[in-house]
Design a protein around this nucleic acid. Structure first.
Lengths: 119, 119
DNA sequence: TAGTTGTGTAACCGATTGGTTGTGAGTAGG
DNA sequence: CCTACTCACAACCAATCGGTTACACAACTA
């Protein structure tokens, strides 16, 4: 068992499976039961149930009980942390690239401007 | 070996490990060699090398050879696919939940506040 | 009441993961 | 040359993952 298992790792590893991403895409178009979710996949309902448990542990979905079925509801909150992490660090990278671009642009500007005067 | 292993799954599963995320954070502040990256972690250089291979396979980093060392360079391109996927589907959810503004505010707050609060 | 349906749990399996140790290739410098 | 350093590869290990089958249980239905 992992010691802490931070939420960010749970969310990313939940998203790392194409079946689970397909489940989320399906759920984005409306809530659904386990059997409805399992129908398009070539696997048993128990396997889908396991995937749902992973998504539930990552708090990407939540489940309620209405009689016999347990419909799944999307919980976008924890995606914020994931997007937040990526955006934060992609920002740094694009900043670095912007700086590089700006630097190159400055170089070009200096060269263009300096044509005739500095040489 | 997995059959196809689509790029999105590679990126997400690469991001699913806190060590690899820390490596990316470190690399965001500048290129580094394997030993430089391995220094802050309580694990061997070989383990870090494995992590780097995962990141390289996900095309989140690339590596060049300069004499004795093999510095790592960030490749943010493939993160766009990941963010794109999340944004696409989170858009649906936030539309449904009508909480886009709150989310953006939280994003900005998280970014300004920095890591560690995103649990 | 009995039977069917929807779902979860448990045990099992092969493949993968994330770490280790040991080793060796390639390069720099004495 | 020899030594030191950086890094990758191979073999091994325990744990986890993604799937299965078998079964249990609660809730509808006839």
């Amino acid at each position: 068992m992992t010691v802490v298992e931070d939420d960010l790792s749970l969310v990313f590893s939940a998203l790392a499976d194409p079946t689970r991403r397909a489940i989320l895409e399906r759920l984005a178009r409306g809530d659904a039961t386990v059997n409805q979710l399992a129908e398009p996949f070539a696997m048993t309902q128990q396997a889908v149930s396991k995937h749902l448990k992973v998504l539930e542990r990552a708090r990407l979905i939540s489940r309620t009980r209405t009689g016999q079925s347990r419909p799944c509801v999307l919980e976008p909150v924890c995606l914020d942390a994931a997007v937040g992490w990526i955006e934060r660090h992609r920002q740094v990278w694009t900043d670095r690239h912007d700086r590089l671009d700006a630097h190159l642009a400055a170089l070009r500007a200096a060269r263009d401007q300096g044509e005739g005067t500095t040489r």
